[in-house]
Amino acid sequence: MKPAAFDYARAATIPEAVAAMRDGARPLAGGQSLGPMLNLRLARPGKLVDIKRAEGMRGVALSASTARLGAALTHAEIEDRRVEDVTRGLLPHVARGIAYRAVRNRGTLGGSLCHADPAADWVTTMTGLGATMIAQGPAGERAIAAENFMLGAFTNALAEDEMLAAVEIPRLSPAARWGYAKINRKTGEFAMAIGLVILDGPWARVVAGAVEAPPALLPRAAAALLAGETSDLDAELAERLPHLSPADRKLRAVSLRRAIAMLSEAR
């Protein structure tokens, strides 16, 4: 199977990549989502610009409150904790459930977020963590909250000549607990449902992921979790996910209950 012909260039720097994108080039990271689409000839870009080798795209920078991860770090590097983990094991756990090792060795954090498949693991995880996307364009840097980054299926908030340079992840405290439950028929497949719960002192987040739309935050469930009460999860899901059938909503409820149950597991 051959994709339609295209030109290829490597960008050595982010500004070089942005300039190529202004000329209509499509950014190529790991190619693990773009590749299948090109092979199927669903996408026919005239030019690809490799961005994963651009300076700074694989950097890690730490502050007291956050970690900034370059967008071109791979899933496997996160899985293996070669990237310092500030999330009490959440990121490595999620990474290990993405696709298969051979895909994780090439696929990148930023590529997955930009691809914006509603069922992708990082999309839900970054929303749950309240991460910040660092975009780079001709006018410089712009910060976008994870909740505002994915606009819809396969659509992100970047302009045509903007790229994702890094993701800034808030540090969880040593007391933080989380649960992440991905439901799929076969290991490594895209999720049919994702439940994510993070509890960190006075801060809690409950997210229903893989909902065929951007992940849905469930504030009532989060408040109930903080108060140590049980919330009416089904009612909140019905309100937030009216577009899903009752059976599909049930699957999300199950994944959330599994995630909540994981909170009590020792880590």
């Binding site: 890690v60 502050s63 070669r82 910060a143 800034e168």
Partner: peptide, 16 residues
Amino acid sequence: PIAAAALAAPAVAAPV
């Protein structure tokens, strides 16, 4: 491990 640099100021995104 991938060497980490120091990050001076965390980014601030527009409120959600």
